[in-house]
Design a protein around this nucleic acid. Structure first.
Lengths: 222, 222
DNA sequence: CCGGAAATGGAGCGGCCTATCCGTTTCATT
DNA sequence: AATGAAACGGATAGGCCGCTCCATTTCCGG
């Protein structure tokens, strides 16, 4: 009796229509978070998913549950990028490649840019585990690249979160000019980290486009 | 008849009690914008100033009017810093000093950090003029420092707004660890800009403090 | 000291947000 | 097909926001 395959409290299987709705919600949230950042409202997400608000809240009682579900795969991509970097021909190549990759993930998705600059995702055990795995791999890369003599000795593991915060700032403030500005910015950071600083730079966006991007950001920011 | 000393439409003198209230509003707004950023609500500012909401809106019909009034002097300080940098013993010293100064202004006031990453302050002629004067002076510094052989030839004037966006990102995302993180970050950027990269670095904040700062930022950001 | 212009502040409107309640519909099992 | 549990979604409560209207109070020049 009650030998249902539940185990953990939340392990109950969803009815298949509920499962479908859950997927549509996550898909819609991925779109909205990607373009507007984490400030997208629950109501807007429900509307975009074509479900009632109650359905959204029943499935994801607190906002961070939804955020964790949406960005699980992006965080896994992050972890994979770090793991791949460990296999690069040189530690510096791996270091450089990972930095470019993770900042590129931020550029592709404004919501993920914010997620990477936040801690304390209460219940999202798996998300935090993947983040930690990436951080650990990056720590190994740091040591190897220093031993190689290509990474400055005063580079600190804390410089990664600081870089991610800075890059997120560029992306949100520059609006449509964000991606290209970010690529140039990351190139400059790599120059700062490297011992020899031979990094090539993406050209700066023309001032007009940068200014236009800064205007569009107004509404969102304030 | 109607020979009052008005001239421009808005030139009418305020009654002295109104003038006093205006000052109290600006003072309160300076405090709130400084600590919470530009998202501080009009109602909160009126409350902090001890005036009615109507008084605030009568004096500053749109938000940007208030923002411009509050940050007029900070923008002037920015202009002065740029002007002072032109007098430095070497162009690179001036360049470096100005970058540190303007990023320091951002660190002291979250609202000003946002103002420096926004364009289009509709009516704030004077604010925009001071901003432009700083930009112009910085442009001269760039050329001189390149001629000196200390600043990389591929540095672009657009790198200044990008730096300000990045620094604002660090400050808002790092919370209480913002100022020290920002100082380290700015040092790294100077390494990236310089030809010889001898810039000393502020030590990285201990990871615990950085993480704590990232948590506190949650509410504000989403 | 007095009268009118200037200034005040709070009630109130419409909008958007999170979150919950509850009557109705849909699914899956027998 | 029947039936009970699961899922649904709209209505709604409660809060904060920007902004306006208007009855009342305060200042200042004659």
């Amino acid at each position: 009796m009650d030998a249902k395959p539940e185990g953990r409290g939340k392990g109950r299987r969803l009815r298949c229509d509920a499962e479908a709705n859950r997927d549509r919600i996550i898909e819609a949230a991925r779109r909205l978070y990607g373009s507007e950042g984490l400030s997208a409202s629950m109501a807007a997400i429900a509307r975009a998913a074509g479900v009632g608000i109650a359905t959204l809240f029943r499935r994801f009682p607190v906002r961070s549950d939804l955020v964790a579900a949406v960005f699980a795969d992006a965080m896994e991509a992050n972890r994979d990028a770090a793991a791949a970097a460990l296999e690069a021909p040189s530690a510096w190549d791996g270091f450089r490649g990972y930095v470019i990759a993770v900042c590129g993930l931020q550029a592709e998705n404004r919501g993920f840019a914010e997620v990477l600059t936040m801690t304390s995702f209460g219940s999202a055990k798996e998300l935090e585990r993947h983040r930690q795995e990436a951080v650990d791999a990056f720590g190994v890369l740091i040591e190897r690249a220093k031993d190689e003599g290509r990474l400055r000795k005063d580079f600190s593991p804390e410089d990664l979160p600081i870089l991610l915060m800075a890059n997120a700032g560029v992306l949100t403030a520059a609006g449509e000019a964000g991606p290209e500005s970010s690529r140039r910015f990351v190139g400059q950071m790599l120059r700062a980290y490297a011992v020899d600083s031979a990094e090539e730079l993406e050209p700066a966006p023309p001032s007009r486009r940068l200014l236009r991007g800064m205007i569009r950001q107004r509404r969102t920011g304030a």
